[in-house]
Design a protein around this nucleic acid. Structure first.
Ligand SMILES: [Zn+2]
Ligand SMILES: [Zn+2]
Ligand SMILES: [Zn+2]
Ligand SMILES: [Zn+2]
Lengths: 140, 140
DNA sequence: TGGGGTTCAAAGGGTTCA
DNA sequence: TGAACCCTTTGAACCCCA
């Protein structure tokens, strides 16, 4: 980062405070991403999963905020055996359509998550899609 | 919210207590909206669906009050919550779970709608949700 | 010194009950 | 129905180690 250059959060455009989880972000997106990957969160976009993430609106759609975090390359330091494709036994058993419902769910959203939160599936089955690196490899 | 600025309920004009469901509202409209979206309510305006909503009159027409709530942008956030019960034949056949996928879909979103748009289900089955959010994303 | 984790006051969603 | 209350999330400030 050249000095004097603006430090802009890659996720929301707020003032960034440095690199967090491999991406230049603000304190808010840093905390949001850390909380997201440390818990079994499953967010759902109330719109069409393409919300614009800005400083003012970043709180209004957690699903798209997290999606953006992942899209720009935020990830945990991959020492702990991460990077395998997202999969849980239930989704594998149901097949792509039931598990992913492509076109309906965005990356990191899985039907199993909802069924787990409804108590239908045991928590052990829940996807942990947040721990996966973007499919294209390490960006930047 | 700029400091010193009046906090007025966007729905009824009463004193607002903060942002509720993404809109500056009073406690009354907050509670009213939460109750409305957590149940399968179906209000009917006894007049011409353009009642003026004020602090004094907000209780007189629930239909127009809810309409106003939605018009000014009130909606659930992206975390799971209760939507409306399913009401199309496919959803009923699949049961609540498959039709609503609570926590995955937002109020007014149904799995059937997505499957219809994917061509899996015939169009006649599509839900016509009342609570649908604007397609473009976060308002404002 | 950079970046991950922790702290905690404020904001906002849900619940209670008169 | 809505005022009062409780609980979770947010993010600015801070701590700590490599
Ligand atoms: Zn940010
Ligand atoms: Zn969204
Ligand atoms: Zn109001
Ligand atoms: Zn009316």
């Amino acid at each position: 980062m050249p000095e004097g250059e603006e430090k802009i959060c890659t996720v929301c455009g707020d003032r960034a405070t440095g690199y967090h989880f491999h991406v230049m972000t603000c304190e808010g997106c840093k905390g949001f991403f850390r909380r997201s990957i440390s818990k079994d969160v499953c967010f759902t976009c109330p719109f069409t999963r393409n919300c614009t993430i800005t400083k003012a609106k970043r709180r209004q759609c957690q699903a798209c905020r997290l999606q953006k975090c992942l899209a720009v390359g935020m990830r945990k330091d991959s020492k702990s055996g991460l990077g395998s494709p997202p999969s849980c036994s239930w989704c594998l058993a149901q097949g792509r359509l039931a598990g992913e419902v492509q076109g309906l769910l965005s990356p990191g959203e899985y039907l199993c998550c909802s069924l787990v939160s409804l108590g239908v599936l045991p928590t052990g089955l829940r996807h942990l899609p947040l721990m996966n690196s973007p499919a294209g490899g390490i960006p930047g």
